Computed example of a mutant assay.
Amino acid sequence: MGMCVCGGALLSCSFGMAPSSLTVLPANRVINSMPVATIMDNIPMVNILPFGMCSSMANPQVAAATAAALGVLTPMPCIPVIPAPWVPGSPTVLIANYPALNNSCKLMCAWAGVIQISNPGTTNIQVP
């Protein structure tokens, strides 16, 4: 069984250079010490904060800076672009009519990064 993810969970991106935290707004949520997250907590700059610098060549800013540096990879500030919700979620546990987020869920960034949960923020709530 996976662990339930709460606000303040630690996130990492495969192309990011720093960890980030998950922000969960408290509207219609189960509150432990922090609000419990759902698969729809995927809004950039609201729920998903930047990961420092981005090193993905799929990111147009990184590609332009790298081209200007004659091919030397030049990371640029991270601005996540999230086109879809977290997958797969826990479909048997619903919070505000959405599947709960567990620590094995992944989120794809449009710049080819895979965002995953490093620390779920709680260790006492398990979800399937």
Rank of each mutant, 00 (worst) to 15 (best):
T23W: 02
I31R: 11
T123P: 05
P77T: 01
P91H: 15
Q61T: 02
G121D: 07
M53S: 11
A18E: 12
N59R: 04
G8T: 08
C13M: 09
S21E: 00
I31W: 02
P75S: 10
C13F: 02
A9W: 02
S55N: 13
P19S: 10
I117W: 05
A64R: 04
Y98E: 13
I125Q: 13
C54S: 00
M17K: 00
N47F: 10
M53R: 12
S12P: 01
I82M: 11
I39V: 12
T74K: 01
A18D: 02
T123K: 07
T122M: 09
S55G: 10
S90H: 11
G113I: 02
P91D: 12
P26A: 09
P85M: 14
C105A: 15
M76D: 01
P35E: 02
K106E: 08
N59F: 05
S55Q: 12
N32K: 13
A63L: 07
S90P: 14
C13D: 02
N119I: 02
W86Y: 10
P91W: 13
N28W: 09
T123F: 08
G16K: 03
A68W: 06
L101D: 05
A84L: 11
L25F: 08
C13H: 03
K106V: 15
Y98L: 15
P120C: 11
V62Q: 02
L22I: 08
V36D: 11
L70A: 12
G16Y: 03
A67I: 05
P88A: 13
V93D: 11
S33W: 07
A27N: 05
Q61W: 02
P50E: 05
V46W: 12
M34V: 13
I43E: 11
N32W: 09
A63T: 06
Q116P: 02
A67N: 06
A64E: 10
